[in-house]
Design a protein around this nucleic acid. Structure first.
Lengths: 356, 356
DNA sequence: TACCCCAGCTTATCCGGTTCAGCAACCGTC
DNA sequence: GACGGTTGCTGAACCGGATAAGCTGGGGTA
């Protein structure tokens, strides 16, 4: 391993990438100290207007932008990024429009304020805690967004212990002292069931999501309650994993049962579309024989025939608001629990009067 | 603005978040110098096994992880993140499963090597260059992935100028000296058209994507050529913006034309599904009257009825490979142009023999 | 015993910024 | 013309790590 330093012309080993200009380069060119450059760039007093302009021109010319690492280290700046951990199997994320829409909303807020978004996918909530700790220790993010809130979620305590700024997207309740943004899923369920009831449906089923998630529980409870109140005896609620396959399987089972439902409410759009396929394959007409309602209204619902009645939420706006809250908290505002708009029922062609 | 420092009990203003342990804290607790801690944590020689174990135990106990900023600054580490800029309208990203699948694949590679992914959305390629420059100057990312390669893409020159490690997802050609990963879209087009020709189709239309994108051009050229070769005179190619609305509009126009096509190839799945809806709405039976082929096979294609014949690619794997290449380049490997698997035609129920 | 070597540490320096405490030069003022 | 105040700048210290070089004590060796 004769590490002779040839060719390069410098003693020190360089990275392959070109040398990036530093504050000293600017200072040298301008014939001032780096302190003057720092003041000039940050709009601080301490340099004359003429010097300031000269420095700014030079910085622009040589394409200087201050090293984030150095600014972070000196305590002047934060990481300039927020973190988002997704712990769903990587392959299934692609099919859930929800996350991409959420992310695009989050990004809309962040890019407006020159913040970055750091993503990480993990296999489960246990790994997530590790990621949070690492991020926090490395000062890699200034705060985190927490999705898929679980019942008795261990992440809440972990984040609180680190006193890492955070916003929980979910709730209400179970968010500890962390800020949160939530929408009233229970009310949306009630509205949907009452609507189906008004259409004459008396056997209504619900295909829920992952039972560990808090919002699944909230929706399931609301469904059971409103059905009890309306006197709907046949109110089946089945859990799933949100996948199209599961949605199809459960729908097939529901439609094959003795007292088959005349209306089904799905916890996401992928399962609803899969359910529609099963209904058609089994020779049932939608909506004449069977009404379907999807939760979360992506293109999917509008593209299929008949178009699916869906619970509509502005997910990008939801994400944007969550990001905005997080930036406020990073700026020192106290955490709060904000209620966002309730999903509203968008009736389309997949719901109609009950067949009997 | 009486900035009295009360309550905190410290002279210096603190961030709201708890104090993060530093290497000095570990050193002090262990009764050694920071250097010993550094050696111990990095597996370097210079400390005895007993001391090393003690240091590691203490580090673990107080939850220490080294400040990324400090490591970057001292030149020992890179940013530990790669960047991905998406310049499509934020709202439309949610509906394209492609990106989320790509991202999940990228993440699979990155999380395995403890790399982060920094996302940024911009409004156009001009802004993208600004982002690259800033990232590079701030040393925020170690490399970037470039999507949606355009014809004469200005980003290529910009990145080369910065000598920022990069992998272009797209091509072949027009990628300068940058590494790239591409698949042979031309071959996939040829296979599809030949398949449709074999089924007896003689009037075939194609609904393309954004004409500025290189792959749109490649596909359009291949389509024109293979149609010419097979003697298909009626070979319409229409550009679009990938949206379902456009897909529906164009399909409606194609199906209303005098010499209407018996087969349509779409450049993405969203448009294909929208096209299917239009066909059904116009009373055409798929596949008896009209055959449809989608490019990129997401759940969408499988969930609709009839299920759509699609050009299948393993997008997560594509993303994972791209990320892997980028990490290699960051490690100093020379850039290369890699050909990934060609999309293969997955025949389903939306294609059949031509009606006449 | 004198010598050398090496394991096992420490001290000093550097990375690229920010910030605080000086410190000249210039101004007007009494 | 000595004084105080402002303006415009600089030197030095610091952030939290990595790293090169120096130091020390104990063991082996001649």
């Amino acid at each position: 391993m004769a590490a002779e330093s040839t060719g390069d012309g410098r003693g020190k080993r360089r990275r392959a990438t070109a040398r990036r200009p530093t504050i000293s380069d600017v200072a040298q060119r301008a014939g001032v100290s780096k302190v003057a450059v720092s003041y000039a760039l940050n709009g601080q007093p301490g340099v004359s207007d003429a010097t300031r302009r000269r420095i700014l021109a030079i910085a622009e010319e040589i394409g200087f932008s201050p090293s984030r690492a150095a600014r972070v280290l000196s305590g002047a700046a934060a990481a300039g990024a927020i973190g988002l951990v997704l712990s769903r199997p990587a392959r299934t994320l692609g099919i859930e429009p929800f996350f991409m829409e959420l992310i695009s909303g989050v990004e809309a807020t962040l890019s407006a304020r020159s913040y970055g978004l750091t993503l990480q996918m993990t296999t489960g909530p246990a790994d997530e805690a590790v990621v949070y700790r690492r991020w926090w220790g490395e000062r890699r993010v200034d705060g985190v967004l927490i999705c898929d809130l679980r019942v008795d979620d261990p992440r809440i305590a972990e984040i609180e212990k680190l006193s890492l700024p955070a916003v929980v997207i979910g709730g209400p309740g179970q968010t500890g002292n962390l800020a949160s943004i939530w929408s009233d899923d229970a009310a949306a369920v009630v509205e949907t069931v009452e609507y189906l009831y008004a259409l004459g449906h008396r056997v209504i089923a619900r295909v829920g999501g992952v039972p560990e998630f808090l919002h699944t529980r909230i929706r399931a409870d609301a469904f059971a309650q409103v059905c009890a109140r309306l006197g709907i005896a046949e109110a089946t609620s089945v859990d799933s994993d949100y996948s199209g396959e599961e949605g199809a399987r459960i729908t097939r089972r529901l439609l094959s049962s003795r007292n088959r439902p005349t209306a089904i409410i799905y916890d996401n759009d992928v399962m609803a579309v899969a359910g529609l396929g099963v209904a058609q394959e089994m020779g049932l007409r939608v909506p004449a024989d069977l009404s379907l309602v999807a939760w979360d209204d992506s293109v999917l619902c509008r593209l299929v025939h008949p178009a699916l009645t869906a619970l509509q939420r502005d997910i990008p706006a939801h994400g944007a608001r969550a990001a905005s809250m997080l930036l406020d908290i990073i700026d020192g505002h106290p955490p709060s629990a904000v209620q966002d708009a309730t999903a509203r029922l968008a009736p389309r062609s997949s719901t109609a009067r009950a067949p009997w």
